[in-house]
């Protein structure tokens, strides 16, 4: 028997309205999580280079734990494990945002650490020699420069996190992949639907790349 496969364009187009419903969830989990992750990253990144060991060690432990375990395990732990501890169910959306926040936060901590450490010591010395306090020197001289260097790796992390949300179909959040799975269960057009899903991810990540490149170019123009 000869097997022939033909891409069914109509099936692909028909799936779009249903799949699109997943995009707000994908974006909400990604950017909600990344926003919190950015704050966590600043906090733990700066703590991880603090002189005091009792601030540095917990930060390093957080970074190692969330970088060293799979995000899928993290989200399963939060969604299925934590309810036992807190005695009540957790909304899958909240679990998803929390997983992205904690996971990206660990990676962003390293981005923050690298960014801050890449600024020459002479910058701090110049600030101190002008009479600025340590914190004034950091926030008005070192941090703005470090932030600019952090843009490319932050963009990279954002793209990774956006794609990571696809794993959260396992806890039943109606994001892109989950919408695809539901749709395929009725139509059996897996090839077409996952093709459309992939294109949608690509649309999101490419737009982000473009925006970041514009920001970077504007930022670098003044350095």
């Amino acid at each position: 028997m000869e097997f022939q496969f033909e891409f069914d364009w109509q099936a692909a187009i028909d799936s779009i309205p249903f799949l699109i419903k997943g995009i707000p969830y994908t974006l909400l989990i990604s950017f909600g999580g990344l926003l919190i992750g950015f704050l966590l990253g600043i906090l733990f990144g700066l703590l991880s280079i603090n002189k005091r060991w009792f601030l540095r060690w917990p930060a390093t432990a957080y970074i190692e734990i969330f970088r060293g375990t799979p995000i899928l395990v993290q989200v399963l732990f939060i969604f299925y494990g934590l309810p036992d501890l807190i005695g009540g169910p957790i909304d899958p959306l909240v679990a998803g945002i929390a997983a992205i926040a904690l996971n990206s936060g660990a990676y962003i901590s390293e981005v923050v650490r690298g960014g801050v450490q890449s600024i020459a010591k002479g910058q701090t010395e110049a600030g101190l020699s002008l009479g600025l306090s340590r914190s004034q020197t950091f926030w008005s001289i070192v941090w703005p420069q470090a932030l600019r260097r952090m843009i490319p790796p932050l963009g990279n992390q954002a793209i990774v996190s956006i794609k990571d949300t696809s794993l959260f179909s396992v806890i039943g959040v109606g994001e892109l992949v989950r919408q695809g799975q539901i749709y395929i269960a009725n139509t059996f057009t897996a090839f077409e639907v996952y093709f459309v899903v992939a294109i949608m991810y690509l649309g999101i990540t490419l737009s982000l790349s473009l925006i970041l490149r514009l920001i970077e170019r504007r930022g670098l123009a003044s350095v």
């Binding site: 020459a120 002479g122 910058q123 010395e125 110049a126 020699s129 002008l130 009479g131 001289i141 703005p144 420069q145 600019r148 003044s222 350095v223």
Partner: peptide
Amino acid sequence: KEVGMVFQQFNLFPH
């Protein structure tokens, strides 16, 4: 506050 310093590598703030 009362002592100014000039460095070999200038150390101007590039931003």
